[in-house]
Write a protein that binds this DNA or RNA. Structure first.
Lengths: 223, 223
DNA sequence: CCATAAAGTTACTCATGAGTAACATCCATT
DNA sequence: AATGGATGTTACTCATGAGTAACTTTATGG
């Protein structure tokens, strides 16, 4: 009955009297703790197989408490996904001010995207079907996703224009890239043989190099 | 005008008296119709948002009827996924008897895989979280998936060995490829600009060529 | 022509889990 | 001290939908 291991999340601050300004900060921290616990459980057991009672138990509170921070279970999932998407968008957003080639910028984007998919909020984007959300939340999430898709296509396009990326169907390429990166959320496990950074690098390498071998540096002698 | 002995092929002949052998066939057809309707609804509205009443209504019967063909909702989903996975496995299975290079065999596999992901049963593999299934069914599905994964890695490995595929981390490559192909189930829509065969070809092309431009007019390395 | 099984129906049970009501504390401000 | 707004609790309501019971109809085979 008693919780075997009290999962102290980020609430390891034992100061019993909170300062005035600290209170508002507390609230934000608690909100985030709820999201984190929820994301973890959603990813592990699935959204529908996780009740808010489960989430609450994980945090040593009761379900109605969660409703002080979120309006519905739906909203909790939505916020998890939004956090994840914002991480990715932050990686996609850096304006074209940089002097890097399209391919270099795409590599950076892919690697950050990949690493986001190894984190709780990043995973929740792809590991929960968007059909679980209310129509409004679903629409908003779709909007965020397509914003990322647009940014991704933009970088690919500019790489094609500056010659650092081979001409290809941008739409299909963007979908293939996003698919390969999203998949990481499905197979990555913290204890696995590869660290997030390694996965990110290898996956980006693979997408850049392609399956077909490249011709050796030196020109091939004719026949 | 006595009806001659009807050929028991599945023609659109609604003859009200079924032949003896036809009966068993009818049952199989009905079973399949249930699966097809279910897969379509699951993909469209999501597994949890689809009730068996919905499926039954779609077929002009009532829910308990479905229980003559399946033991549970769980089983229905399981069978949908199994159908999809078997399609892919059929593509992955062809023994190494062929004289084609590893890359050629991989292209064929990827294209068939991709096309499967545009069909109802193929979609259900990736569009429903496996957390929806009972532990036993989930384990069995996982088995089938890893069988495909093994086959995929085998083809990649043999391509590396015969020089038709660039050396790379086979595990990561297999995950990236499967991810890119699985993603098709999420963005393909029947009315879209690309037909399944085109999507399959473009995606395979992209994965084979990679993002980085290739040196112009280089002769293929010998094999 | 009757027994039997298959296929389908209507009308339920029943567990689950989201969301709410009403009540209890704690802390800060007046 | 009293007021009031956060925060938290216990104890519910209530809709949904999977699965079942019991009965009807059809049709096959002995």
């Amino acid at each position: 009955m008693a919780p075997p291991k009290p999962t102290d999340t980020a609430l390891a601050d034992p100061s019993p009297w909170r300062s005035p300004a600290q209170r508002g900060r507390d609230r934000a921290l608690k909100r985030e703790a709820v999201l984190k616990a929820a994301a973890r459980l959603f990813n592990e057991k699935g959204f529908h197989a996780t009740s808010l009672d489960d989430v609450a138990r994980q945090l040593n509170v009761t379900k109605p408490t969660l409703y002080h921070y979120f309006r519905s279970k739906d909203d909790v999932l939505f916020e998890c996904c939004r956090m994840g998407l914002e991480m990715i968008e932050a990686a996609a957003a850096p304006g074209p001010g940089s002097s890097a080639s399209g391919l270099e910028r795409l590599r950076a984007l892919m690697e950050q995207y990949a690493q986001a998919m190894t984190m709780d909020f990043g995973m929740s984007i792809t590991r929960t079907p968007d059909t679980a959300l209310s129509p409004e939340n679903r629409a908003e999430l779709r909007r965020l996703k397509s914003q990322i898709d647009r940014a991704l296509r933009g970088v690919i396009q500019s790489g094609i224009e500056d010659g650092s990326i081979a001409p290809c169907d941008v739409r299909t390429a963007a979908f293939a890239i996003a698919g390969a990166l999203n998949a990481i959320a499905h197979w990555y496990r913290p204890g696995g043989p590869l660290a997030p950074a390694e996965i990110a690098r290898q996956t980006a390498d693979f997408l850049i190099q392609g399956l077909a071998p490249r011709a050796p540096k030196r020109r091939q002698p004719r026949r």
